[in-house]
Design a protein around this nucleic acid. Structure first.
Lengths: 116, 116
DNA sequence: TTTAATCGGTTCGGCTCCGAAACAAACAGG
DNA sequence: CCTGTTTGTTTCGGAGCCGAACCGATTAAA
């Protein structure tokens, strides 16, 4: 069964989750950083800087800087591709996986609490 | 009937909507700005700068600047409170309402397209 | 009336981010 | 080799945001 979510409910859900994010402001991720993080943890194949830049429709430095800051937060790691040493493969971390998992739980919880 | 959304589905939904936002990047709103906008359009009572600052847990200049930029985008307007002229009441605009409405439709559409 | 409190806005130095361009390293083909 | 391409990073000037502190206007209290 597909997920039934009316536009008004969607907005309430979006606001509730955003408000909790802004208020707690743990690792404060921008929309771009959050998109990169979710892409990394939901699309399981290997990811490169170039691939992420194309997917998001941004330039390469944006990805490099986002990976820098998320790396400082411990959410991702980088490794040279041994097969083609020009490439950098972005790798997941335990901390990053936990962060994404908490986000999923948070959204699901807010959805369950929505008025009918 | 409450909204049923598993954590894995929630993450897919979040990623899909964020990706579309980043790629189109129309009015590019930060998490704080988006939260303010949704608060204004979902909580129908009158809003002041101070009230919004408390709700989001941020300082007043943050709200002032967010309202400045959203005002330039045509998403909100400000008006002095005639009853207490120290207050500034934030007002909705047609353009802002349309923006919020599009967001709701977008999230609902992505939710309906989610795999089971 | 004078003093204090409240409200939104502005100033300030510091920090982050932006994209275009230049760059170094690594491959590919002749 | 040597030339050209690809990949990720760095540099650069410019723009925007940050919170603490301060400011001017307004209201409330003494």
């Amino acid at each position: 069964m597909a997920v039934q979510l009316r536009p008004a409910q969607a907005l309430r859900l979006w606001e509730a989750v955003l408000l909790e994010m802004v208020r707690t402001a743990e690792p404060d991720l921008s929309a771009r950083q959050m998109t990169i993080l979710l892409t990394l943890y939901l699309e399981t194949h290997a990811h490169t800087v170039r691939g992420l830049a194309e997917r998001l429709g941004v330039t390469k430095p944006v990805i490099t800087r986002a990976l820098d800051s998320m790396g400082r937060m411990g959410l991702v790691t980088r490794k040279r591709d041994p097969a083609d040493r020009r490439n950098v493969l972005i790798q997941r971390t335990v901390e990053g996986a936990l962060f994404v998992e908490r986000l999923g739980d948070r959204v699901a919880k807010k959805a369950a609490e929505l008025p009918h």
